[in-house]
Design a binder for these strands. Structure first.
Lengths: 210, 210
DNA sequence: GCCTAAACAGACCAAACGGTCCGGAAATAT
DNA sequence: ATATTTCCGGACCGTTTGGTCTGTTTAGGC
């Protein structure tokens, strides 16, 4: 029942190290020996916690997805506390993410899901559907808000709430890529600001809280 | 001087096959033996055309970048023929890309540059700066237009032409990722439409040509 | 304090992988 | 025709890589 020794801490260290390396080298480029050196453990420790590299991949993905879901949920709650209006909630939501990224001094290391997507073929169905579900959950989260907004504030142009919701993820993922390629830490917050600007113009919102 | 035999055709076949596999498996996931089987050649043929796998990587990137530059240039020319107004030119430019992607029946296989970016650490400086330059060129291409537009049509909100230009690439790259993850071929054209919609609202353009 | 099982360390292994080498076919120059 | 060079097939090689195995240490249960 209780965690014996400190095995769980080692497991987390492995997951952290592997995540860092996957974001720098890709999943195939991340070699186990490299993780061992990076984390400061041995083969015995690693394979005690993970039967295979594939199992590490899945654990890594699951952890990342749940951590991300937590951030999304917390940010959403925070936005909902600051306003009752769905449009304002979305605008605050985006702005909170902008603030998160604007404080960074070097480019965001990237999204683990995206790095998996670009090596998609070598993962099994379980991993692929996990990716699908995670992105789908992000879509649903914002889609609900946009449906409320569309009803309350007639958009200047006919728009699809699901597409608008995907837009957030699209901008984030795209910005991560350009941020790394151009070595520009401000990319993510800048592009999110443009996305927020779009939402403002589309629904003709009053000037948002600064 | 002249190309003897048909070695150049084989070289192209290798590049095509390698590109396909990189987009499915990533660069590290793309194994040479797999390329040989996919293309239908042998080790002797491969290493006759490319000294190392790294050299293949660079050749692949250079070819992709120049092909992409050609598409951008042609689309830009086409847009400039259809209108003299910089704003209309941009809107047509985006729409032409939308049309390119709307005809697809399966998700766009992805951008080779992006797949390199997510394994960036394992490439040398030459490759990395080639990535940087390619993205920078795309930025400049649209930035010039946006600078003209901003002067001619005062935007509803203060905007940065370079950031607006990056927005196009950001949306494209992000859409490719979601398209693969969600297995949705329409993602790219849909998200480009939203980007175009943003530009329209921002500069309060008249309804674009349908 | 003793037992048990988790939590490692590290030598070892088989397969996969990038790359070499040499022989031969095929095309071109002379 | 012959020499020469490109082009390619395929056996071979050293290293890397994911994974195994055995032994040892360490932390709790009693």
């Amino acid at each position: 029942m209780s965690m014996r020794k400190d095995g769980l801490a080692t497991r987390e260290k492995i997951l952290d190290g592997a995540r860092d390396l996957v974001l720098r080298l890709g999943y195939s480029g991340m070699k186990i020996d490299h993780v061992l050196e990076h984390v400061g453990i041995t083969k015995g420790a690693f394979f005690h916690h993970f039967k295979t590299k594939d199992e590490l991949a899945k654990a890594l993905l699951r952890r990342y997805a749940s951590q991300d879901a937590l951030i999304y949920a917390e940010t959403r709650e925070q936005a909902e506390k600051l306003s009752d209006d769905p449009l304002q909630q979305i605008l605050i939501f985006i702005r909170l993410f902008e603030d998160m990224f604007s404080e960074m001094t070097e480019p965001y290391p990237g999204c683990l899901l995206a790095s998996y997507v670009y090596e998609l073929q070598q993962f099994d169905d379980e991993t692929r559907s996990l990716l699908h579900e995670t992105f789908a959950r992000w879509r649903t989260l914002l889609q609900e808000k946009f449906e409320l907004i569309v009803k309350k504030y007639p958009p200047k142009t006919p728009v699809n709430p699901a597409q608008l919701a995907d837009g957030f993820t699209v901008v984030l993922e795209g910005a991560f890529i350009l941020a790394k390629a151009m070595n520009d830490a401000r990319m993510a917050s800048e592009q999110l600001r443009l996305y927020r600007n779009y939402i403002e113009l589309l629904f003709a919102a009053p000037a948002p809280a600064r």
